[in-house]
């Protein structure tokens, strides 16, 4: 961990700017998400103000509603802020779950080899061949019955499509790390297979997981929005979701009412861009084939006076 932070600190050039830009935008969204109740003037499903007066439908941006209101009488600014919370909840849940399942599976599969490995690789490759959006739709559809259409269901349908990515990367690095001398050395000191996996392989095969994690997070935002756009994601009364708002706003956008579509769309694009920048920046930082390190100048102190040089110099 200490190593990782030092590596990130020591990046230079483009990688540093990519990482920095991505992190700053992501942090802004994280602040939105954490402090949504205080930043947003209204609740995400609020259609009347404190005195009970209903909001204007498709109200233009102005004093009362900073970014206007949409066709469901919702305040767009509040929806966008609350939407950040939804997006980050789903992203965090799906990435953590798919790492927690994919990484151990890949480790075990790569280490054990044999038929366990073959079956797992076959299943994962089979999942991989299906277009991921289609798969997410199928899972969302199936989970709608069991879990309703909330955050958990949306996250779980994303988990299913991300597990194979972690599985593949971890499994392949494990297969090559398994042959390393230090693994044989671990066997020679009497380590059990579980100990070898935990203590000797895990630390050496998870190096690329942070990169996939951030790139997946970016992808998850897009997929979640797509599900919402198709009406299979989170319903508007459960949480605010950008993709759903975008789909509602499409018809009005054709009629010249641009504000309900612009802001959720912009939020989606910004968050995806930010997370992708973080991912690519991390990749350039952590991948030894790509990374360039910051060089620091070494300052020499003035060491010698002229009289000393003459004494020291051998003649």
């Amino acid at each position: 961990m200490r190593n990782l932070l030092r590596q990130i600190w020591n990046t230079k050039g483009l990688a540093r700017w990519i990482l920095l830009t991505g992190t700053i935008i992501t942090v802004v969204f994280v602040v939105f998400a954490l402090f949504a109740p205080w930043i947003a003037p209204f609740d995400f499903n609020q259609t009347r103000d404190a005195s009970g007066v209903k909001f204007e439908k498709l109200g233009s941006p102005g004093a009362g509603h900073l970014l206007g209101t949409n066709d469901q009488f919702f305040d767009i600014f509040s929806r966008v802020i609350w939407g950040a919370r939804t997006a980050l909840e789903v992203v965090l849940l799906s990435v953590i779950l798919s790492v927690a399942i994919g990484v151990p599976l890949g480790l075990v599969s790569g280490f054990l080899g044999g038929w366990v490995d073959r079956v797992l690789v076959f299943v994962m490759d089979a999942i991989y061949t299906v277009p991921y959006l289609l798969l997410a739709i199928i899972f969302a559809f199936m989970l709608n019955d069991k879990l309703g259409s909330g955050i958990v269901a949306a996250a779980l349908s994303l988990v299913a499509i991300y597990i194979p990515q972690y599985f593949r990367v971890v499994r392949n690095t494990t297969v090559s790390a398994r042959e390393a001398t230090y693994v044989e050395a671990a066997r020679a000191i009497g380590a059990k297979p579980t100990t070898i996996m935990r203590k000797y392989l895990f630390g050496n095969v998870v190096q690329s997981v942070p990169v996939i994690g951030t790139l997946n997070a970016a992808d998850a935002v897009g997929t979640l929005a797509a599900l919402g756009f198709l009406g299979l994601g989170i319903q508007p009364n459960e949480a605010s979701e950008w993709g759903y708002d975008l789909s509602r706003a499409l018809d009005d956008a054709q009629a010249g009412v641009w504000w309900p579509a612009l802001w959720p769309g912009l939020a989606i694009i910004l968050l995806i861009t930010a997370l992708t920048l973080v991912g690519e920046g991390l990749n350039e930082t952590l991948n030894p084939a790509l990374r360039r390190r910051r060089l620091r100048k070494v300052q020499f102190t003035d060491r010698v006076r002229t009289s000393d040089t003459e004494e020291v110099a051998p003649r």
Binding site: T181, Y182, K199, Y200, G203, N204
Partner: peptide, 8 residues
């Protein structure tokens, strides 16, 4: 160089 776990 290979007999020691690089992360220990």
């Amino acid at each position: 160089h290979a007999a020691l776990n690089p992360s220990m």
